[in-house]
């Protein structure tokens, strides 16, 4: 595995194309992400944001173009996929916690069975992570017994347990009540400050403005505009961007 070099992009997407049947979802997407960068992806519904970030850890397969993560190109090679998935953590809109396992087991599961850590070590680390997302006292409960915000924080801890270099967030706050959104965003901000490389699909413009290094606007499967938050919120160029921002703000 290649050593992470601070000046080299950790994710490289070059001319990525993807179809669902005849439907062209991603059209020549080019995006490089630098280590420790926080990239926020916005865009109208159905524009292919989820599909794109799911291609990065190969929950979806792209048909054309190149995706290189941490020096490994995504291909059909099963070993590559396994290696890349353990580098990338992912947080879903619907949490997708494992309902039959306790919170602690949810977090400790992958380290134990993928990294083959002894149970005790894995649980200790899991507890530290739960502390980091602010819910150590819920460790013995089952996901069904937690609020939405707490569940999403467990999901973040679960992804972090594999010590990923990159974190993908697909609308992590969309399924949450307003008062729970903040607690999840706070955890994400703190994560960004600690230097994690993050790709975040979200509609939370406040978060984008405050935390993002770069904002990417998707529309109809392609990148329409890309730039710093300052650029986006003060001086958007593309008509589509202006329209989108006027609807959302």
């Amino acid at each position: 595995m290649a050593e992470t070099n601070a000046s080299e992009p950790i994710i490289r997407c070059h001319a990525v194309n993807k179809w669902f049947g005849n439907f062209h979802v991603l059209k020549d997407v080019d995006l490089d992400v630098m280590p420790q960068e926080v990239v926020v992806i916005i865009g109208p519904s159905g524009s292919g944001k989820s599909t794109f970030i799911r291609c990065i850890n190969r929950l979806e397969e792209h048909q054309e173009g190149q995706i290189i993560v941490d020096g490994i190109e995504l291909s059909h090679d099963v070993r590559n996929i396994a290696a890349i998935r353990s580098e990338i953590g992912m947080v879903f809109q619907q949490f997708n916690l494992f309902p039959h396992l306790t919170v602690l087991d949810n977090v400790a599961l992958a380290p134990r069975y993928v990294r083959r850590q002894p149970r005790r070590t894995a649980e200790e680390i899991a507890l530290q992570l739960l502390e980091r997302v602010g819910i150590p006292e819920q460790a013995r409960k089952y996901p069904g017994q937690l609020s939405g915000g707490q569940q999403q924080r467990v999901a973040i801890a679960r992804a972090l347990a594999m010590q990923p270099k990159i974190m993908l967030f697909d609308e992590p706050t969309s399924a949450l009540d307003p008062e729970m959104i903040k607690e999840v965003l706070d955890v994400m901000k703190q994560l960004a400050q600690s230097g994690m490389t993050m790709l975040v699909v979200t509609h939370e413009m406040g978060f984008a403005r405050e935390v993002a290094d770069r904002i990417v606007l998707f529309d109809e499967g392609r990148i329409v505009e890309m730039g710093t938050p300052e650029h986006f919120f003060t001086n958007p160029q593309h008509e589509r961007t202006k329209l989108f921002l006027s609807q959302i703000l």
Partner: peptide, 15 residues
């Protein structure tokens, strides 16, 4: 979503 979450964590299909 359960299967996707497990895949995303790096669990192989048998696991």
């Amino acid at each position: 979503g359960q299967i996707e979450a497990a895949r995303a964590l790096g669990l192989n299909p048998p696991l």
